[in-house]
Write a protein that binds this DNA or RNA. Structure first.
Lengths: 136, 136
DNA sequence: TTAAGTGCAAAGGCTTTGCAGCATA
DNA sequence: TATGCTGCAAAGCCTTTGCACTTAA
């Protein structure tokens, strides 16, 4: 792993992250890891999340709240939709490259990360909360 | 204020948020408020940030890290660009309505909040870090 | 063998909360 | 006057760090 020794703990963590359908925060990851190896510590989880992220093995996303979610890096760019009713997170494809190009041109920024965050109510929940629409 | 009494502290906090050009987190807001009224407490700052946000007076944005920034709600939608080099935050206009419409159609979501988060290097900093480009 | 990783426990930040006193409407 | 806000201090969370021990290569 690029100069970093492979350890039992790292294997376990990566395996769990891969198995999860994404949307795993540090705490959940720790809980799941702890179920399978109850000697693992939170420190190890955090340290390895940082490492994996640095090595580009996983993506770090902010989904609502202040908490981060981590997921295996996918080939396809995708973004997340968070339902304020049931908390469901939906992935969807959404090419941001046009926007990114525009920003590069207009602002002279070289963009390294682009994330679109959408919050709202899914089909089911928007029926229950008819008033919450319309901000857009 | 919609059933909520006007207080010295609320006036002060709103005034500071208005004067700031945005990009104020809770800690900075507390520091600034404390400079003018050293009896104000962090609890009051947090409680009122939540209140203002609930009343729609301010916007809550996640700019890098896990921290939130708060700013007075602007008429114009705008998004933020965060420079990984110098930490500068740039506002720019960027209509997301097309994307939002697409999501509504394809996923049946009614979107209440849309945020584009871009990270990268500004003109100055990308000169110093020529390798960091190219992710897009 | 040795550089690196791990667990534990403690410390660090930021945010929230309970409570008694105070202020607004 | 009554509801709601405030300050204080303590507690809560999540995350990071120091240190001694363990492990992969």
């Amino acid at each position: 792993m690029q100069g970093h020794p492979q350890t039992r703990q790292r294997d376990l963590l990566l395996q769990i992250i891969r198995e999860a359908d994404g949307h795993l925060d540090a705490k959940k990851l720790f809980t799941l890891a702890n179920d399978r190896d109850n000697s693992i510590s939170t420190a190890t989880v955090y340290r390895n999340l940082h490492l994996f992220s640095k090595l580009g093995l996983i993506d770090e996303k902010r989904l609502g709240q202040a908490r981060c979610s981590y997921e295996i890096k996918h080939a396809k760019q995708h973004q997340h939709l968070v339902c304020g009713g049931c908390g469901k997170v939906v992935d969807f494809e959404c090419p941001l490259s046009e926007l990114v190009d525009k920003v590069k041109e207009e602002q002279g920024f070289s963009v390294t990360k682009a994330e679109l965050y959408l919050e709202g109510y899914c089909t089911k929940c928007s029926k229950d909360k008819p008033g919450k629409d319309s901000a857009w």
